[in-house]
Write a protein that binds this DNA or RNA. Sequence first.
RNA 1: GUGGGUGUAGCUCAGCUGGUUAGAGUGCCGGGUUGUGGCCCCGGAGGUCGAGGGUUCAAAUCCCUUCACUCACCCCA
Length: 421
Amino acid sequence: MEIITAVRGFKDILPGEAVKWHFVEQTARTIFSSFGFREIRLPLLEKTELFKRGIGEATDIVEKEMYTFLDKGDEYLTMRPEATAGVIRAYIEHSLFAADPVVKLFTMGPMFRRERPQKGRYRQFHQIDAEVLGSDDPQTDAELIFMLVHLLHTLGLMSLKLEINSLGCRDCRPAFRTAITEFLSGKEGELCGDCQRRLHTNPLRVFDCKVKECQQVLASAPRLLDFLCDACRDHFEEVQGTLTLYGTPFSVNSRMVRGLDYYTRTTFELTTESLGAQNAVVGGGRFDGLVKDLGGPEIAGIGFAIGMERLVSMLALADDGLDQRPLLYIAALGDGAKKKSGLICNRLRIKGIYAEIDYSGKSLKSQMKRADKLGCRYTLIVGDREMDEQIAELRDMRSSSQIKISFDKIEDYVINIAKEN
RNA sequence: GUGGGUGUAGCUCAGCUGGUUAGAGUGCCGGGUUGUGGCCCCGGAGGUCGAGGGUUCAAAUCCCUUCACUCACCCCA
């Protein structure tokens, strides 16, 4: 029989890995809750229109990367390629803005984009996403970034580079867009093929280009930051001032642009050297027009998305470092002993003790081997002899010392050991 | 969508310019101790050599096609 494999770009997260994911998720939940963020769980499937309007019709994501299908012939649905659009949709749909002027939300789960898989890029990938709705204060920006950096430090990731930029608002950005388009039009011939295309679709993205020639052309190009209106300039300066006050190191990268249309003003990115080409571990920014664009009131927002696969792959934890090891292994020899052992084992388990047992009926030697391999602290041996006397042998696997213990005292004894360990 | 690299045991890999029953390490199972783990020793199971076609007396090895994985472009978390 031919085996059926997973879909291209869709990965299984095996138990050894899953432990790391759990650690990251737990840490995030704890930190988010002390900053006042509450979890929201959202559908994976949304109406296609949501992403077209939210992310932008001309973006690569919407143009060629979405998993979209016609549902029963009457409606286009899309597997969410990112989380923010869904969060805002729910925020508007349930009028969360009416209950509280500032709403802080987080969510985590799978996203889907149909790209060619490579290191750090999969077709199903996972994000941890946090958003603040209802505040356009620059301190909110700084606070969100501060929390994010704190989370990454707590996870042991100290060497990520934080870059920030301001994209301006809907008042000042068009002027820059015009200026850069004019500037580049004169030099179209000097740009790479991709950039000549970008010039017409999304000129700001030329800044992202890795081709040397393009970067040379850009050296004398107008700078986004010089085009900011007074309000945006003040805003950006206060973001920087607050980050400095909080002791969060950053650098301003005036060439950093984002791939989603909804971003305004503050944008930021955390990158690593250790991941190859897909070096962005976190991306985020302000989206002050998005709520209104999606049919809600005029409410400001800012958020970020952490790439889980990229983050987890940087974790220095040993594979088994977080794996639980049984406190007790029960080696049972013979049918009567197996039944008795199963009862003991499961009674311990419901007391919260991780005990392991083998029903295979293998030799004591092979059961001992297994106990050792699992890293058990103690092994309880129950055979015919023990059944006759109603007394089991308890072996300490570290010291190799062994004591006899009567059946009716095992449970209390092991519970006591558990308290000490 | 475009390029490059790689596909041999569960895992990591060796296999020279084609040559006989395709190997190692590790893991798994068993034995050395008829009821005692780790270290050591011995044995065993496990492979359509990614798939299909071609060249040849002979193909894991050479050629073609195809698929998968992977890295990079692109894109982004």
